[in-house]
Structure formats: structure tokens, C-alpha cells
Nucleic acid binder design. Structure first.
Length: 422
DNA sequence: AACGCGTGGGA
DNA sequence: TTCCCAAGCGT
């Protein structure tokens, strides 16, 4: 395998893309003939018919070009689609749940969560009537917990406004919490057969290559072009399968790195393939450097239990349970950490010792949890810092909605022997 | 509209 | 082990 092309730039200014053939700024080295046979070969332009000028939002693709993508892609999907559990159901609620879980999350991660969650909350009505705490518990470890809060709120709206049945059009779905343009299009097309377009990261990459769409992720003109293409392409039979075929193609064949162009069902229609630009479209995304976040974490044992707190609903790990935590400066001495925890808990705690640090890399946060064993003269009351305080045994704590970071912290504390026999 | 929001898997 | 990465929704 040749060296990887850097597809993302951290902390660098975006490279302006000049949308004219021949003077496009190269952000990645071109794939050479020595590359793996699975990679896109550079090749002389065929005498093919796809347009040779980069696509602008005002330029509609030729109907023949759309047709040369639609048919082969659907045929390929019928032969190659993965057997995913949510493709075995027609229940709109189950399909909705899969789409929410799949936001930002890989298929293999979602599968067990989807099956477990659906058993626990089998209908929108069951979900709506469950306490948020239970819903977050079912979501624990999946990340982006606002998805669970919005899903819960949306289920309650579906019951209140639609009698427990999900509305069937993208326009109506868009009104519900947690439904953006993508999810509304996905549920409307897959569950209800509406010719509703969708664009996710896979579709954006596939279109960027097939139709040579220029521009960085987030560029308004680029987004408009992609949605216009999705809108034109989805019109016709089997809109749900067409949308899924686009995403499946992007996830398995038209991959970000080392796309399998020789296996691609639409390579003769692909402008980037014809021009040898597959490896440079779409351009890499610019990422912000993660900010450092350091929390002091109180490990307070009492009679076989530890003290837990429920976080505020907004922000990081919103609504989740944790060992009570307070933000501190990264270089803060333990005395300051003790003071912060005392203020958060509303009682003056004593420092009994340091138990170690748990580090977690989030997308936008470089998280450090500094565990401090504490004791106090009396039980803390509820304070403004937390929604609720509760003493829990390790077994009970395992059932609470908790972030993976805090689960690691709890594991570390228990390994350190803070509870006798634990 | 730029930024905040998690995690597991792969290099 | 450590670093890097995906990409929709809400504010």
C-alpha cells in the first residue's frame, strides 16, 4: 500500500479551490500507477459523455447522466446490500430509531444498541411514556446524548399530536425534535416511500466524485448543489432503496480512502474517475484543535455506596449521571480541586487521597478526569451544580445513564479499592 | 453560521 | 499505546 494521503488538516486554513480544469489546487498527491489495484487509477479521459466542467448549483446534470447512475446503482444495491437488522423491518419507528443512532455512528456499533433499545422501548408510545432517565440508560455508551433526549421528546410529540403514529412526509417529520433535513428525508423515503432526497457524508462524497462537485464541506454553494443532485436523482421508482444505495455505495465502495473504483458500478459515469481526481474529491475537512477540559471527580464512599450526581440537561454529557465532577484548571493543585468540589456539592469535603487520572479524547475536547477520594462531615443536599444526588452501589450505578469516560473513572475507583470487597 | 456534541475502530 | 477520524442536529 502506498502512503496515505492526508484527507484532513488540523488547524490549517482551508485551501481555496479554483473551479477550473487544469488549475485546481492539489491538496493530496495523485494516485500513481504503482498504487494498489483497488485504488483509482489515473487514466486518459475516455470518450465518455459525462460533463467535463465542474458542476455549479445553477448547472443541472444531464438527464442521461442521472439515468446512467440511477439504474446501475440500484442493481448493484440489490446484489450487494448488507443484511442489516433495520432492513428487515417496515416499522417506521424502528427505522427512525436506526437513523438517529446512525448519525455520526458506525453501523457495527449501532446494531447491538438498536436491538436492545427496541426490546426495551418497542413502540413510540412506550418510549414516550418512559422516564428520560431510562432512555438515557438505554443510550449509555453510544455518545451524542442529545440524540436520545430529542428522540424522547419527539416520541412524546408523536403521541400527543399524531396518536402515536409517525407522520409520513419529510416536511412533517422535519418539525419534530432531532429531525434535520437528512433524517427527515431518510425516514420519509425508506419507511414511507416518499421521493424525498437526503445527503449525508457518504452521499456528499459520492456526488462530489461522480459529478465533480467542488468546494469544502459546509460551503453553501456546494451544499445547494449536493441537495439539488439528491432531489433530481431520487425521483423515480424505489426512492428509499435509491437513497440507501447511495449511502451503501459510499460506505463500502466509494470510501474516503482507497475507494474500490475497479468494483464501482457507476465508474463509467464518474467524472472524477475519468479525470483521475477521485483521490482529491471531496477536499479534506479542516478540524479545530480539541480544547482541554479538566475535571476534578469526587469519589466519596459511604456504607458500600458511592455518591453520584445527575448533570444539567444542556452541554457535555447532558442529563447523564457521574461521580460528582467540577471543572478545574489543568495545572490546579489538589487544594483547589477540593475547593471546587466542596462548592459544587455544597458541603466542605476533605481530601483523602488521589486515585489517578482518566484521559479521554473526544472530538472537540481533550478530557482529563482527576479522581480524588473525599469524605465529608455530613451528607450533601442538592445543589445548583447538579439536578440530583444519589448514593448508589456499583451494581445500581451500572444501570444509570453514564458516559463512557465516567464509567472508566468509576472502574478505576473500584479497582483502587475504595469500597471494601469491591 | 460557527461551534458544541461521543465513541469505537483503524493506522 | 497513541493518534486520528467520521459528519447530522441544535443553538
Amino acid at each position: 500500500m502506498t502512503s496515505r494521503s492526508p484527507r484532513s488538516k488540523r488547524g490549517m486554513a482551508p485551501v481555496h479551490q479554483v473551479p477550473l480544469e487544469g488549475i485546481v489546487t492539489k491538496t493530496r498527491p495523485a494516485v500513481t500507477a504503482a498504487a494498489s489495484p483497488d485504488e483509482a487509477p489515473t487514466r486518459k479521459p475516455r470518450a465518455g459523455r459525462p460533463p467535463s466542467t465542474p458542476l455549479a448549483a445553477t448547472v443541472a446534470p444531464a438527464p442521461e447522466h442521472l439515468a446512467s447512475v440511477r439504474g446501475p446503482l440500484l442493481d448493484w444495491y440489490d446484489r450487494n446490500k448488507r443484511d442489516l437488522p433495520w432492513r428487515r423491518t417496515k416499522d417506521p419507528y424502528a427505522i427512525w430509531l436506526s437513523e438517529v443512532m446512525l448519525q455520526q455512528t458506525q453501523v457495527s456499533t449501532v446494531i447491538p444498541y438498536w436491538e436492545r433499545f427496541l426490546k426495551r422501548f418497542p413502540t413510540a408510545r412506550a418510549l414516550a411514556s418512559a422516564p428520560l432517565d431510562d432512555v438515557l440508560s438505554g443510550w449509555k455508551g453510544l455518545g451524542y446524548y442529545s440524540r436520545a433526549r430529542n428522540l424522547h421528546r419527539a416520541a412524546q410529540e408523536v403521541v400527543a399530536r399524531f396518536g402515536g403514529t409517525l407522520p409520513s412526509t419529510a416536511a412533517e417529520l422535519l418539525e419534530l425534535p432531532g429531525f434535520g433535513r437528512y433524517t427527515a428525508g431518510a425516514v420519509a423515503s425508506i419507511a414511507f416511500g416518499e421521493e424525498a432526497p437526503l445527503v449525508d457524508g457518504n452521499v456528499a462524497r459520492v456526488f462530489s466524485r461522480i459529478f465533480e462537485v467542488e468546494g469544502l464541506p459546509g460551503d453553501r454553494q456546494r451544499e445547494a448543489t449536493l441537495w439539488a443532485l439528491a432531489t433530481a436523482l431520487v425521483k423515480g421508482p424505489r426512492p428509499g432503496d435509491l437513497n440507501q444505495a447511495l449511502m451503501e455505495h459510499g460506505a463500502t465502495t466509494c470510501r474516503p480512502e482507497n475507494p474500490l473504483c475497479l468494483l464501482c458500478p457507476v465508474r463509467t459515469a464518474c467524472v472524477a474517475f475519468r479525470k483521475g481526481r477521485v483521490d482529491e474529491l471531496p477536499p479534506a475537512k479542516v478540524r479545530a484543535t480539541p480544547k482541554k477540559l479538566t475535571l476534578a471527580v469526587a469519589v466519596w464512599p459511604h456504607a458500600g455506596t458511592l455518591l453520584f450526581a445527575r448533570r444539567a440537561d444542556a452541554g457535555l454529557f447532558g442529563g447523564l449521571w457521574e461521580l460528582p465532577a467540577a471543572e478545574i484548571a489543568d495545572d490546579a493543585p489538589d487544594s483547589e480541586a477540593r475547593a471546587r468540589l466542596s462548592a459544587a456539592l455544597g458541603v466542605d469535603v476533605s481530601l483523602e487521597g488521589a486515585l489517578g487520572t482518566v484521559k479521554r479524547q473526544l472530538t472537540h475536547r481533550d478530557l482529563s478526569l482527576r479522581l480524588l477520594r473525599v469524605s465529608g462531615p455530613r451528607r450533601p443536599a442538592s445543589t445548583p451544580a447538579f439536578q440530583e444526588l444519589r448514593w448508589c452501589s456499583p451494581d445500581d450505578a451500572g444501570k444509570l445513564g453514564m458516559s463512557t469516560a465516567m464509567q472508566r473513572a468509576l472502574d478505576l475507583a473500584l479497582e483502587a479499592g475504595v469500597l471494601p470487597g469491591g
